[in-house]
Amino acid sequence: MLQTDANPHLIATDRCGEQLQFPAIEALWQLLDQVPDPEVPVVSVVDLGIVRELRWEQRQLVVTLTPTYSGCPATEFIEEAVAAALRAAGITNLRLVQQLAPAWTTDWISAAGREKLRAFGIAPPVGSASKRTLWGEEPEVACPHCGSPQTTRVSEFGSTACKALYRCDSCLEPFDYFKCI
């Protein structure tokens, strides 16, 4: 039967389903850049820095992922979504590895990811993660709606562990701030 697959395989397999070709790692990065974060679907798991490494170990694709927060309820969901995207592209032999160290930091969010967060109405993390930003003065968080720097923190925690709640003193809109850790 002729296959008309809506999700065309990146690679060919033989009759036993054995992979015959091994796509370039760069193509796989682009593929995973289409997998959205389940909590903030405007950014991909690649934008957020959750995918740490992709490499072929002979015929097996090894995918290294890192959780964002220890208790992030989306961790398993992300693992499944990444595996599903790769399987849909025809990669049958893959192994997911969870890596805890070095611990995930918002410094790994890409420039494109930060811009997408802002456009979605979430202020991206300000500055880079260090003890100083955890302990130091309040960062100056600009309103993602009107750009005003006049904003007030309403709560240290927002709708998810990775965000804090802010309010803009100029346009009066509330917004989420992606905390810098």
């Binding site: 220890s70 208790g71 309403v154 709560s155 925690f157 562990a161 709640l165």
Partner: peptide
């Protein structure tokens, strides 16, 4: 409400670490 979310998020962090 803000405190409730903060307490819930604290719990989430702690239970996540407990799992590790």
């Amino acid at each position: 409400l803000e405190e409730e979310m903060a307490l819930g998020n604290l719990a989430l962090d702690l239970i996540g670490q407990a799992r590790s």
